[in-house]
Structures are given as structure tokens and as C-alpha cells.
């Protein structure tokens, strides 16, 4: 469904992605794991068109996204839940959700989807007329996911949905993602929280300083010794001189 071939991109003259290749098949949940500054968010920004791609290609259902603006990428059916949620703070929860469907013109269906999203996330119904900025971090994350779903995406991309949330809220967000997976949603999930992400995902990629260093089925990655040492915190011991 989505295929990246040796994508290079960066900020200013500074390269961040040094040739990323990955793919996501329809119905799959794929995770991209890495530490701070590894290029996870940059990859998502490059796919969604917020960051120009220097080299390589991004193909989505046979269409090259590399030269498209974010507005056009969304219209192709890729929705991004950005890092840090980025809800429109002074707008109501309802307005945030409606904006998620901005590029769609099937008004009736949008209205039905709005009801459906609020059905799925009752908290958004309760807070429908509240300003999004007054919601808690976890609630904002749910809103951001709901907003992305309003775009009726063929592929849902999430950028660190667990970041900055209390453990209880992380569990809740992942419960939502499991439900979406069960419904057959295709997901590309970027995470620092490798443990949670690998539990959910079918396959995973590990990115380090702009390159993919490991890839494979999630179950295999969980068992990979390098992976365990670096990202899952197993077998860690202090080294004394």
C-alpha cells in the first residue's frame, strides 16, 4: 500500500533521513521504532508532504507522493496524528473533528462519521462543545486520533501517541489502537515506547540516525538481542571498570 524507497530528506542543508526504505501492506500495523533524533517523525513528515523529499520515492497505491503538498496527500487517504497531538486549542472538540474531514465533500457521510467517532470515543461526545485546549493530555490524544479518523484514511499514521501521557492513558490509547487494528485499519505507528508498539504491531522497523538498522515481524524483533538491549531494556547491567 505504502512504499518508501531510499528516501532522503532533512532540514535546511542538514540531512536527517539518509535513505529510508520501508513498506506497509493493506490491513497491516507497522511500527517504526527509534530513539530521539533518529528520524522517526521526520519520516512521517516526509510522507505527509510537510517536508520536501530530496531523493527517493514515496508511493501510495501506485501514486508518487514525493511532490505532493500535505493537502493533497490527505486527500489521497493518508492521515497523520502529529507528535504532541496538536489539537486546535481554542476550537471546540466538535470543530476539531469537523476540520479532520475538511478535504471531504460528502457532507452527509461526514456527519455520519462524526457520530460514529463520537460513538467510538464517548469522551469526545461529553466534551463536544468544550475548547480542545481544556482537555487532558490523554483526551487530546483521543481527539487527535478521532480527528484523523474523520479523514476516512486508508492509512493512519501516528507519531508517538504515548508521548507524555500517564501510564493509565497510554494503556487507554493502545486499547484504542488495538480496536482500530481489529477493525482492519492499516496503521503506521512511530514510537519510542518499543515494548507497547511491538506488542501491537505485525511488523516493525528500527531506525537509527536516519537509517533502518533492523526490520522484521514484531515477534522476531521482540526476541532480537540487539533490540532487547537497546530498546527493551533487558539484559542491562552496570559495567564497572
Amino acid at each position: 500500500m505504502l512504499t518508501l524507497k531510499s528516501v532522503q530528506a532533512g532540514y535546511g542543508r542538514l540531512p536527517v533521513l539518509k535513505g529510508i526504505s520501508l513498506h506497509v501492506r493493506a490491513g497491516e500495523v507497522v511500527t517504526l521504532i527509534g530513539g530521539n533524533g533518529a528520524g522517526k517523525s521526520t519520516t512521517l513528515r516526509a510522507i505527509s508532504g510537510l517536508l520536501p523529499i530530496w531523493r527517493g520515492s514515496v508511493e501510495f497505491n501506485g501514486l508518487n507522493l514525493a511532490r505532493l503538498t500535505p493537502e493533497k496527500v490527505v486527500a489521497q487517504g493518508l492521515a497523520l496524528v502529529p507528535e504532541g497531538r496538536r489539537v486546535f486549542a481554542t476550537l471546540s472538540v466538535n470543530a476539531n473533528l469537523e476540520l479532520g474531514a475538511f478535504h471531504r465533500h460528502d457532507k452527509k457521510q461526514v456527519r455520519r462519521d462524526l457520530e460514529e467517532v463520537k460513538e467510538r470515543f464517548p469522551i469526545l461526545r461529553d466534551r463536544a462543545h468544550q475548547a480542545a485546549g481544556t482537555l487532558s493530555g490523554g483526551e487530546q490524544q483521543i481527539l487527535a486520533i478521532g480527528r484523523a479518523l474523520m479523514a476516512r484514511p486508508k492509512l493512519l499514521m501516528l507519531d508517538e501517541p504515548s508521548m507524555g501521557l500517564a501510564p493509565r492513558m497510554v494503556a487507554q490509547v493502545y486499547a484504542i489502537l488495538r480496536k482500530l487494528k481489529a477493525d482492519g485499519t492499516t496503521i503506521l505507528l512511530v514510537e519510542q515506547n518499543a515494548r507497547a508498539a511491538l506488542k501491537l504491531a505485525d511488523r516493525g522497523y528500527v531506525i537509527e540516525t536516519g537509517r533502518i538498522i533492523l526490520q522484521g515481524p514484531a515477534a522476531e524483533l521482540q526476541e532480537d538481542p540487539e533490540m532487547q538491549r537497546a530498546y527493551l531494556g533487558k539484559g542491562y547491567r552496570e559495567v564497572w571498570e
Binding site: G49, L50, V74, A79, R86, T90, L91, L99, G100, F102
Partner: peptide
């Protein structure tokens, strides 16, 4: 719709673009 889109652009331009707002 357009009124809210203008507010969205004022609040957060990148995220507004992700919503498909030109």
C-alpha cells in the same frame, strides 16, 4: 467550515495542512 479553517491556520499552520486545508 472556512471560518474554522482560518482559525486552524492561525493556531497551527502545519497541522491545518495535515487536515487538508490549503
Amino acid at each position: 467550515r472556512y471560518g474554522k479553517a482560518i482559525v486552524a491556520c492561525a493556531l497551527d499552520r502545519d497541522t491545518a495542512r495535515l487536515m487538508g486545508i490549503n
